[in-house]
Amino acid sequence: MKVNGDVVALDVEPWVSLLDALRDRIGLTGPKKGCDQGACGACTVLDGNMRINSCLALAVQYDGHEITTIEGVDHPLQEAFVRHDGLQCGYCTPGQICSAIGMLAEHAAGQPSAVTGEAAGQRLSEPEVRERMSGNLCRCGAYNGIVDAIMDVVGEAGR
């Protein structure tokens, strides 16, 4: 697979999660093992532009794929998170940023939200961002800053 632009050859058992392969075999510590059950989003990485919970994915499923972790991200969201206090302890931040990048790509591609049904062509509203980011938890409660950072990047700040 390609990880953050580099081709990586791994010899892993079929039961090794993508998260464990990234952290333990490649040494990337950005994706975090929070719940290890797909409930918190701390392990979120990108497969192309699609966000995935790497703790639920088997590494062997991603043979030949392009995986991006926070270490490979260069996106305006990173500065926006700092500007808008979208982080406190920082534990969830790598997953939040990867998830936000994936969420913006989903919206741009016209994928409707599971709850609101809004899709591309419609303004990405604050409630829509909150719903689309609901799979990423922040124990510090930095949600308002996270949403403000995302809205800033999509040009909706000061609405």
Rank of each mutant, 00 (worst) to 15 (best):
M1G: 14
M1T: 13
M1P: 13
M1I: 12
V7H: 11
V7C: 00
V7S: 12
V8L: 06
A9L: 10
A9V: 13
L10P: 00
D11L: 08
V12G: 04
V12K: 09
E13D: 15
E13C: 01
W15D: 12
W15P: 01
V16G: 01
S17C: 07
L18N: 01
D20Y: 15
L22R: 03
D24L: 14
D24F: 10
R25D: 15
I26W: 04
G27W: 07
L28Y: 12
G30Y: 06
P31I: 08
K33M: 14
G34D: 05
G34W: 02
G38I: 10
A39Q: 15
A39P: 00
A39H: 04
G41H: 11
G41C: 14
A42D: 11
V45M: 00
G48I: 10
G48L: 05
N49Q: 13
N49S: 14
N49H: 11
R51P: 13
I52L: 15
N53C: 11
S54R: 07
L56G: 04
L56V: 11
A57D: 11
A59V: 09
Q61S: 14
Y62G: 00
D63E: 14
D63F: 03
G64M: 04
H65A: 14
E66L: 03
I67S: 01
T68S: 04
T69G: 09
E71M: 11
G72L: 07
V73Q: 02
D74P: 00
H75L: 07
L77W: 04
E79P: 00
V82N: 06
V82G: 04
V82Y: 06
H84C: 09
H84K: 11
D85C: 06
G86C: 05
L87S: 13
L87C: 02
Q88E: 07
G90D: 11
G90K: 10
Y91S: 08
Y91V: 14
Y91I: 15
C92K: 08
C92E: 09
P94Q: 04
P94M: 03
P94H: 07
G95N: 06
Q96K: 03
Q96D: 08
I97R: 00
C98P: 09
A100P: 15
A100M: 06
A100S: 15
A100W: 06
I101D: 00
M103I: 04
M103Q: 02
M103T: 10
L104G: 04
L104D: 02
A105L: 01
E106D: 15
H107Y: 06
H107S: 03
A108H: 08
A108W: 03
G110T: 10
Q111R: 14
P112R: 09
P112L: 04
A114T: 12
E118N: 12
A119Y: 05
G121F: 04
Q122G: 12
Q122L: 13
R123E: 13
S125Q: 14
P127A: 08
E128R: 10
V129H: 02
V129M: 01
R130N: 06
R130D: 03
E131T: 13
E131H: 13
R132A: 01
M133H: 10
S134I: 06
S134K: 12
G135W: 06
N136L: 05
C138R: 05
G141Y: 10
A142R: 00
A142N: 02
Y143H: 14
G145Q: 02
G145F: 03
I146Y: 00
I146R: 00
A149N: 09
I150E: 00
M151D: 01
D152F: 07
V154D: 01
G155Q: 04
E156W: 03
